[in-house]
Design a protein around this nucleic acid. Structure first.
Lengths: 196, 196
DNA sequence: TTGTTTTGGTGACATATATCACCCTATCTG
DNA sequence: CAGATAGGGTGATATATGTCACCAAAACAA
């Protein structure tokens, strides 16, 4: 148990170290606000209409944020695997009710950070705010790339692009969820990699 | 001329005030790093391969960031009108060469902020960093909405959504550019609002 | 003024992808 | 164990949208 906790701490530490430098005291202070939360496959974490007060840093496993339209068609906004963050950021940042769902694709361990605590630490440790600004910048750039891919590429190249960038998803995530992320029907995706 | 400058200052001030509170001294210090730059319609601001060292806050007029693929098809990532920011953020934040173009849809006045100065002021005035973090958060949420729209809606409803959210674009921007933003051919867009 | 570019409208046709229907095999669950 | 559910494959057909070709008015430039 102790060893496991140490590892969680190190995963977060390395993730943060990529952007900013915190000394041990600063990091431990920031880390103290993260609460370990584990989820089982298929477990719902955020449902449409919920109040959203925290975000999740994924240690292992896989989450997905998604939207289901009137015709029961699911669209996936994001898969979150190791070292990714997930929440309904629209709800979280604008103090609105959730407009998307967050749930668990495969058993997952996460660290939960409440908005309240996040803002508190941002005020107290300037570097933490810098980290979060850069995290947001990177997210923005990632979404821009996805939009370009949706505008510019057909289903096959979007699929190949995704598998090249995140090969771990191939085994971790059922194909119909991949389809829901790419914006194609599961039938079309199936035909894509079965030589039409 | 003096009056015009005052107005520019107020446009930026009001924009920033929506997120954080700066006193006059702090704001004037931040403002002192913004350089007024004006562009003529069709003028190129950033071209693929350029070094990107600054971002632009739009005072009036309209810019677009776009990508042209091998088949000469243009895809528009963003229109930037009054109080929007524009640059190649991938290049700007990762110190890479530009991978998208930025140019001028209609004569525009902007305020240019260099990365170097942005980081300097972020370090010096914590609130400015808070502002930029929230700006990035809002951008992220906006792109998420666009992705959902691309995944969930057909061309017609994407068009209607855009016109409802940004009605000023209807007169400001030629239809084929709207099409390039929505991800449809100009012919299809034309048919959409001419009752098919 | 005159020629050129920009903007945009439309018919005919091509094509990628969605939809529906049905099937099969694992895997889960009581 | 048996039934249910999840995951996945595939043919037939429908449909939204793209592509090509051509036209025309408005805006712009020489």
């Amino acid at each position: 148990m102790y060893l496991l906790l140490m590892k969680d701490r190190e995963i977060l530490r390395r993730h943060i170290d990529q952007t900013i430098q915190l000394n041990d005291e600063q990091f431990d202070y920031f880390f103290s606000f993260f609460k370990p939360v584990s989820f089982k496959k298929k477990q719902s974490i955020i449902q449409i209409g919920d109040d959203v007060t925290c975000e999740y840093f994924v240690l292992n496993g896989c989450l997905k944020t998604f939207f289901v339209n009137d015709e029961q068609k699911m669209h996936i906004l994001q898969f979150a695997t190791k070292t990714w963050w997930a929440s309904d950021y629209n709800a979280l940042h604008n103090n609105k009710k959730a407009t998307v769902n967050l749930d668990c694709v495969s058993d997952a361990d996460t660290l939960c950070l409440f908005s309240e605590d996040r803002e508190k630490v941002c005020k107290e440790i300037h570097e933490v705010e810098t980290f979060l600004r850069w995290r947001s910048n990177k997210g923005y750039i990632g979404l821009q790339k996805r939009i370009l891919s949706l505008l510019n590429n057909d289903a096959r190249s979007r699929y190949e692009e995704l598998m090249q960038q995140y090969p771990e998803l191939y085994n971790l995530v059922p194909k119909h969820l991949i389809a829901a992320y790419l914006g194609v029907s599961r039938e079309t995706l199936s035909r894509l990699y079965h030589a039409r």
